[in-house]
Amino acid sequence: MSETMKAAVLRAPRVVEIADVPIPHINEPTDILVKVEKTAICGTDLHPYEGRLELEADIILGHEFIGSVVDVGSAVTQFSVGDRVVASCVVSCGACYQCRRHQPGNCAGSRIFGLGLALGDLDGGQAEYVVVPSADITARAIPQGSNVNDEDILFAGDIMTTGHEAVARAMRPGDTVAVVGAGPVGLCAAMSAVALGASQVLVVDKVATRLKEAEQFGAIGINSSENDATDAVLDLTDWRGADVVVDAVGHPSALLAAIPLLRAGGVLSIPGVYTEESMTIPFADLYLKGVRIEMGVSHITEYMDEVIALMGAGKLHPSAMISHRMGLSEAAEAYKLFEAREAVKILLDPTR
């Protein structure tokens, strides 16, 4: 093994370079070192890329990846060298009050790959190698001889599980689920709502191509640039509103668009990432409707096994969202495409 590796490094907002950096090494007995086989660009990566989340310079980006284990800490019990794994984007301690209550996203020691010192100082997975801490908790073995393909299971570490949790924690079979935003997380939420038995899945967006993708997953697309989304949802629900509304965007305008779609007593689920310290919302409407709100950092490790099982059963196919397959060497161009919304989901191959 050489002393250095290639990695996508964020030098400054909108400046991504492929750099030669030292190969990381295991620091704790609970770590594993993974040789990355596939990685992806996530919507959350755009927060530091666009400068909305200020990070120190020279961060290795990325938190969606799969690969093979090449080194194992002495305290790791679930993995051996040669195992192929997918890792949760969020690393938790597994032992604190929040983790014991099955809410690892609220762990005070939570860390996220590729988001700098403020979120745990973990190098990201858009590189040839990455260290996975607390491996027995964070990672899952890729099932051998199953129907799950690599490009599907890659997304079990973040967007597929994030979208799945957004509906699983909020809906019952037979519910109408409305999803605002047909980006990757929104499409995953729609996919899971169909798999979990929603009677209707309605997806609201302004981009016709993304709505066509949602329709391929069994949803009804509503183009909010051509139709009043509130009227469309009410018309499809006998003027009650949706039982569950998912804000899969993470922007104040999306939240304001989501609230009117919800029926009285319904559930507003917010997997979209918000960085605003404050914003104005129609609180009286939420109160009078008796709305329940589910939001926060996703509890990925609580839902990964369920998602992988549904993939194996042929119920979830997030790889259908992949629009571009590029080499890691093309990361700078890939980020430009993704920011411009010219790509739904981009895979990066560290060997290219």
Rank of each mutant, 00 (worst) to 15 (best):
R11I: 13
V16F: 05
A19T: 04
D20L: 06
I23P: 05
I23C: 05
E28N: 15
I32C: 05
L33P: 01
V34S: 04
V36Y: 07
K38G: 09
T39E: 03
T44M: 05
L46P: 10
H47K: 07
Y49G: 11
G51Q: 06
G51L: 06
G51S: 06
R52M: 15
R52K: 15
L55R: 00
H63W: 03
G67N: 04
D71M: 07
T77Q: 14
T77A: 13
D83C: 13
A87H: 11
C89P: 12
R100C: 06
R101S: 12
A108T: 14
G109D: 07
G109Y: 07
R111D: 02
G116Y: 07
D121Y: 05
D123H: 11
Q126F: 08
A127L: 11
P133E: 03
A135G: 08
D136V: 08
I137D: 12
A141H: 11
G157L: 00
D158R: 07
D158Y: 09
I159H: 08
A166D: 08
V167P: 00
A170M: 05
A170S: 12
A170L: 07
G183S: 06
P184F: 05
L187C: 07
L187H: 06
A198D: 00
A198E: 04
V203H: 02
A208P: 13
R210S: 09
R210L: 10
L211G: 13
E215L: 12
G221I: 08
A232G: 01
L234R: 08
T237K: 02
D238N: 10
D243V: 02
V249R: 04
H251G: 08
L255F: 05
I259K: 09
P260F: 12
L261C: 13
L261V: 12
A264W: 14
V267D: 13
P282Q: 03
F283T: 11
A284G: 12
G290E: 05
R292F: 10
M295C: 13
G296I: 00
S298R: 10
H299I: 13
V307Y: 14
V307P: 12
S319K: 09
M321Q: 03
R325P: 05
R325S: 07
M326H: 02
L328D: 08
A334M: 07
L337N: 07
F338G: 10
R341D: 10
A343W: 03
K345Q: 09
T351W: 15
